[in-house]
């Protein structure tokens, strides 16, 4: 049972090593409280993406324990993984949208897997797309949109099922200054509504004047920057 004091994300002595002997994370201990906005920074290859992938169980740690919203990922069975992922919305630098599906269909995917009825799906997708300013483009296809718009579709897909945790992996990496500002505004809005956000970026301008903790991943260890 998760109490108000229990961290929503907890890393306990987590190490990750890739064969033959590439150590990415070494004995990482980290706790993130519910509703926190945390920036994860570090140079390219420092292991930011690995840390995020460990959280939605795309990978398993070599040793240590990871607990996400009360679920111990080390003892999680394969059949339970989809239920973990429904608690986490993931946003990628390369958007990961299906080009043969419309904006509406891409966002609806997250709700369809929950078994929601067609009318419910339609209502919530429209709401979220309006929220990210793309209500008028829901019938268009990703290749017809700009990079910033595609990233907003990706964000809409990540949040439409109202997950308590949002993981963002360099979501502004492919965007210009204006689009970056739009995405950051959306992230702050989501955080203000109670979502826990772990935001991986190497761009220090994004967190310089922003509220939230900043953690740096370096040489396999996590250091608190601010």
């Amino acid at each position: 049972m998760l109490t108000a004091e229990t961290p929503i994300i907890s890393f306990q002595g987590v190490s990750k090593k890739y064969p033959p002997n590439h150590l990415v994370m070494s004995d990482v201990n980290l706790e993130i409280e519910k509703g926190e906005l945390v920036f994860l920074t570090g140079q390219s290859g420092a292991g930011k993406t690995t840390l995020l992938r460990l959280l939605f169980r795309a990978e398993l740690p070599t040793s240590g324990k990871i607990i996400v919203d009360g679920m111990d990922l080390s003892s999680l069975s394969r059949s339970q993984v989809p239920y973990l992922r429904r608690k986490i919305g993931v946003i990628f630098q390369d958007f990961k949208l299906l080009s043969n599906k419309s904006v509406f269909e891409n966002v609806a995917l997250s709700l369809e897997v929950l078994g929601l009825r067609k009318e419910q799906v339609k209502k919530r997708v429209c709401q979220v797309l309006e929220g990210v300013g793309l209500g008028h483009k829901m019938h268009q296809y990703p290749p017809q949109l700009s990079g910033g718009e595609q990233q907003r579709v990706s964000i809409a897909r990540a949040v439409v099922n109202r997950p308590p945790i949002i993981l963002a992996d360099e979501p502004t990496g492919n965007l210009d200054k204006l689009r970056t500002a739009e995405v950051m505004l959306l992230m702050h809005e989501l955080n203000a509504r109670g979502a826990t956000i772990l935001f991986a970026t190497h761009d220090e301008r994004l967190y310089q004047d922003s509220p939230g903790r900043v953690l740096r991943l370096e040489s396999g260890k996590v250091e608190v920057v601010s």
């Binding site: 059949s79 992922r85 990961k96 299906l98 897997v113 897909r157």
Partner: peptide, 16 residues
């Protein structure tokens, strides 16, 4: 394959 990857990412079960 890409579609399968995204479906898994958003929490789709194998039967879905």
């Amino acid at each position: 394959q890409e579609e399968l990857e995204i479906l898994r990412l958003v929490g789709a079960t194998n039967s879905f």
